[in-house]
Design a protein around this nucleic acid. Structure first.
Lengths: 334, 334
DNA sequence: CTGTTAGCGCATTCAT
DNA sequence: ATGAATGCGCTAACAG
């Protein structure tokens, strides 16, 4: 059965304070007693109760990582980066997904906020001010890829707008004029920014946006697949398609291949994120490289820094650059 | 600042007991006071401290999910299945990765075991008996894909041996005789079982195993890539390669394509898992379908069942069937 | 060096 | 229906 500090103390014939001392190595303890305590701990299989400890110390040694979803390569990469760092820094990472629903996110925040010393929130569909009333003031938070209404929070994001503009400009420079877009979930800021980049690029080249070429989506492969099929049904097909993330581009590519539409000869295809898979597709996918793993690392590093600091730190907001990666899905022979 | 139950009581001009009552809806409370309490909670942004609650109630409402890694499609799928169920059942899932190291796993177990009401452990490199001394007796545990030394624990796994045998038999039936294998991490039971399946299939067809065709690996794409390159350097190349998981097959495919080795014409390729990506590769990947998402669901369901049960349940051990999926990487024209 | 004691925030008796 | 008091397991301050 689960034993407690009293059991250990009794067995080692010392006071509970002494047990606590050897446990936390706070002040010197007589080697003899230390040994007895260690032996008792061993024999009982005693493990301190973090609930009791955190009640007292007001810290938990854990960090919450709240993501819209944990599925897919994008998030895998992000988690990998983040996990390494938190492990090194002796923090325990609690990962949860909010399924892109604000309500679920709020619930998750409520669920964890008292169990952790800090929170990492990636919520492209929410904004920092909107979440503020759910988050206990004083709890360190780092937002990733979340809309910042003001300068009060730490926010790390990357250049969604610029990346999309670059990619679509690349298509335009290849001579494409009928360029479709398959979008992400409607309220997601990253989807919105990428869409803006798309529109901006078109404008910059004097191309009028065509509404029938702007297909709604939700970041999933299925949406990419369905969106691409819808585009193929059009009487006046586009010559290029920009999927707002790689995941959807994967689905689109499948739709094209099923219908015998060659990429890039019949239709060019671009994505966003540069997930590992992008390079494995045939043809490989032209996309916008986002330093996902690095962002994962950076954001926990910052979170841990904020958590360890006694004083509240000056909020920092940064937007990381992204890079266009040209591959076979837009230029044949690559 | 973080407020506590006392603050709420003071503000609502009631006792803390009353606050606790409206919080947990235990016994009837005068509507008037209830209102005052609710108002105070609202105004203070009060959130109960789960640490204090669990100290008293001896339950946490959380489940631990300990996986070897959380990267890649296999684990994404698993988590997706699991997440849905635990959310529905009002349990909070704490996910952590042990990096395939027993020491890390033990550390993670220690870290979480007192924070949760039950644990889901996927540890292909460990065995149930070996972990027993780290896990507090009485804590409900469900193992997935972990070696069972005895009948004392709940273990859910799938037919690694049979799946591998089927796949390699398929290659043999296509006429292949020089069949290489790229293996998983050495101590992982799934890798070991799949290797056994490979050997067994060869034997069944009277083919002698060739040691130079048995390449070590570690389940990562990089290992698949390197393994495939090593095979290509052989003077006497294999005509088929079985990668012990799809992830490595992806890496192998890349190596082949880089060197202009056609799949399946020059070399056939098989994987294991049937991750979503397998179907998107060109050629699509012949593999062994594992009902990953379903296993994720089943295992938490069982865990929750054990957790809710007052009495200790009879341990159940089950091995789920897997299915050979033949695609383009072994048979051209698919 | 070591033991005793007072809470941490909360649910739960036991009185009222 | 409600409040006062008790204790969950632990650490820290205090007193030896």
């Amino acid at each position: 059965m689960k034993s407690n500090i009293k059991d250990v103390a009794r067995r080692a014939k010392v006071s509970i304070a002494t047990v606590s001392r050897v446990l936390n190595d706070t002040c010197p303890v007589h080697p003899d007693k230390r040994m007895r305590v260690e032996k008792a701990i061993q024999e009982l299989g005693y493990i301190p109760n973090p609930a009791a400890r955190s009640l007292l110390k007001r810290e938990t040694g854990a960090l919450a990582i709240l993501l819209p979803v944990i599925t897919g390569e994008f998030f895998s990469e992000f988690l990998t980066g983040l996990d390494t760092v938190s492990r090194e820094e002796k923090y325990f990472a609690i990962v949860s997904a909010s399924h892109r629903e604000e309500e679920q996110l709020r619930l998750a925040i409520r669920n964890v906020c008292r169990r952790v010393d800090g929170m990492l929130v990636m919520a492209p569909e929410s904004s920092t001010a909107g979440l503020r009333n759910v988050i206990p003031s004083g709890l360190p938070v780092v937002y990733v890829n979340t809309t910042a209404d003001d300068q009060l929070d730490d926010v790390i994001s990357f250049d969604n707008f610029g990346g999309a503009r670059k990619l679509v400009s690349h298509l335009l420079e290849l001579g494409h004029r009928r360029i479709a877009i398959i979008n992400g979930t409607p309220k997601a800021s990253d989807a919105i920014d990428r869409f803006r980049g798309y529109r901006q690029a078109l404008e910059g080249h004097g191309v009028k946006p065509v509404e029938s070429l702007e297909i709604p989506g939700d970041f999933t492969q299925e949406a990419g697949y369905e969106g691409a099929r819808a585009l193929l049904r059009l009487s006046d097909r586009p010559t290029a398609v920009f999927c707002v993330n790689d995941n959807m581009a994967v689905g689109a590519l499948r739709a094209f291949q099923e219908r015998g539409v060659r990429v890039p000869e019949d239709i060019a295809l671009g994505g966003f994120d540069d997930i590992p898979m992008a390079n494995y597709l045939t043809p490989s996918l032209t996309t916008v490289r986002v330093p996902i793993k690095k962002i994962g690392q950076m954001s926990v590093e910052r979170l841990i820094q904020k958590t360890r600091a006694k004083e509240a730190l000056q909020p920092e907001q940064q937007v990381l650059p992204v890079e266009l990666v040209i591959r076979g899905s837009t230029v044949a022979g690559r």
